[in-house]
């Protein structure tokens, strides 16, 4: 009897988590998926309309804006974070005595809420009191920086704040990668007469490919999810100029009472993320299995 219990105990312990995940994650995904095929407005409805919502969604200007913004934001965010992260990591790896002091400074933004980050950057980039004003006070009268108020440029201010928040994390990933490079490889290259910069561009940076991949996956899925930062910094504005998929989903579902469209946009977001994450997780897991 006790043996039987012991045998089932592990499964019993795991069961609550399994059931919760099954219902609250996969069941909910299925439910939202179902809603995306219905004409739900303010309340959920079960009148199925086929792919109508999907057709409608991709005809909406706001959704197109959201996708274009996501493309701009994600590209710049990933590229700049990777470049800045790699650069700082390489420089920090040159036996810098102040590393212990500098590293936490580069990383602390990761501990902050995007609402806090957004508030700080919102007012710092505000033309009236922030950067532009500072330059004017310093005597550079022609300096103009009104991006955050500009429909065409507001999206780039989101990039500035997001890069500030995440690049330190990418730096930490690269630094861990650089510290894992075999000393012998570097010494051999030096004996061959390669200079420092060539050692990096030809040998070490190409070895960082797995780190680039991890950074890409993490940053890409953060970019698709970005919501708080937009709300705090621009509120999706000016106008709807900084609309993102996440803000689109929220406003269509909860303020515009277009639940069917909202659910559809959520499904598209999920598919975008899974398209990137599933192959990555799968390869990581199967590699772990072989180890």
């Amino acid at each position: 009897m006790i043996d039987r219990l012991q045998q089932w105990l592990p499964r019993l312990v795991l069961a609550p988590s399994f059931i919760v995940i099954l219902l609250f994650v996969y069941g909910f995904i299925a439910y939202t998926g179902v809603l995306s095929f219905t004409d739900s407005k303010m309340l959920a409805s079960y009148d199925f309309v086929g792919f109508e919502n999907y057709a409608k969604l991709f005809g909406l200007t706001n959704w197109k804006t959201a996708l274009v913004n996501l493309a701009i934001f994600a590209t710049l965010y990933i590229v700049i974070c990777s470049v800045v992260g790699l650069l700082i990591a390489i420089l920090l790896d040159q036996k810098i005595r102040a590393e212990g002091l500098l590293r936490p400074i580069y990383l602390y933004p990761m501990a902050l809420s995007f609402i806090v980050t957004g508030t700080a950057w919102k007012w710092f980039l505000d033309p009236g009191i922030g950067l532009e004003n500072i330059m004017h006070l310093w005597g550079w009268d022609s300096f103009s920086f009104t991006w955050i108020k500009d429909r065409d440029f507001a999206i780039y201010t989101l990039v500035i704040a997001a890069v500030w928040q995440s690049s330190g994390f990418v730096m930490a990933m690269f630094l861990a990668g650089l510290r894992g490079v075999d000393n012998e490889i570097i010494r051999a290259a030096q004996i061959d007469g390669a200079t420092g910069i060539r050692i990096y561009t030809r040998i070490i940076v190409p070895m960082m490919r797995p780190v680039f991949l991890s950074a890409f996956v993490v940053l890409m899925h953060l970019a698709i999810k970005v919501y708080d930062l937009v709300i705090a910094m621009t509120g999706g504005g000016p106008g709807r100029a900084t609309e993102m998929p996440a803000t689109f989903m929220y406003s269509y579902t909860f303020t515009r009472n277009q639940m069917g469209i909202g659910a559809t946009s959520a499904v598209i977001m999920l598919m975008m993320i899974f398209a990137i994450v599933v192959p990555y997780v799968y390869s990581e897991l199967s590699r772990g299995g072989r180890r």
Binding site: T32, M269, F274
Partner: peptide
């Protein structure tokens, strides 16, 4: 205490880390 099918449970938990929360808001 591995058992048959535990890999699937773990994969399900792992994948749940990445979902965009918009997909669960309505339900």
């Amino acid at each position: 205490w591995r058992f048959k099918g535990d890999g699937i449970v773990f994969a399900m938990l792992l994948l749940s880390c990445f979902i965009p929360f918009q997909i669960v808001l309505i339900p």
